[in-house]
């Protein structure tokens, strides 16, 4: 049930990405400064995604002492997180724009917490691995 609802909302969100004109049909146009703030939030999330992708490249290139499998895993995890972040940036931007037009509350999301925890755990793991790699 939860899964089905989740899939449906993902489907609706993706359809909205491709039909931006439908966003314009909703509600009234907000103050352009709010739209610009939303745009900067989108860019900040996009940079977060780019930073994660860059982090993936960095792990792959700058940790040569790490064993192949571990390096590969960390790299792919970072690259996937970066791609998800970029997609989520678009999704959140569209949802915020819609909410502003309809005069609703801005959408809440667990994504920032999940991302922060994930990055924290990965960073801790990498620190341990690097320290062990240097001493071992």
């Amino acid at each position: 049930m939860i899964l089905r609802d989740g899939l449906r909302s993902v489907g609706a969100a993706v359809r909205l990405w491709w039909a931006p004109a439908r966003v314009r049909e909703e509600g009234s146009t907000p103050d352009y400064r709010f739209s610009l703030a939303n745009e900067r939030t989108f860019l900040a999330w996009l940079r977060t995604g780019l930073a994660l992708v860059g982090g993936g490249f960095a792990v792959d290139q700058f940790l040569p002492r790490l064993s192949g499998t571990l390096r590969l895993t960390c790299t792919v995890v970072l690259l996937v997180a970066g791609a998800l972040c970029a997609l989520r940036a678009v999704n959140h931007w569209v949802r915020c724009e819609l909410a502003m037009r309809r005069g609703e509350d801005l959408p809440l999301s667990r994504f920032p917490s999940v991302l922060a925890l994930g990055v924290g755990v990965l960073a801790a793991v990498l620190v341990v691995l690097v320290v062990l790699g240097r001493t071992g």
Partner: peptide, 25 residues
Amino acid sequence: DLPAWIALLLAGCTVTLAVFGAAIV
């Protein structure tokens, strides 16, 4: 307003870079 195609294109570039990296690695 920011046109949606720009947002999608930039996200697409980022995703493609990630896929490119994963493929190479």
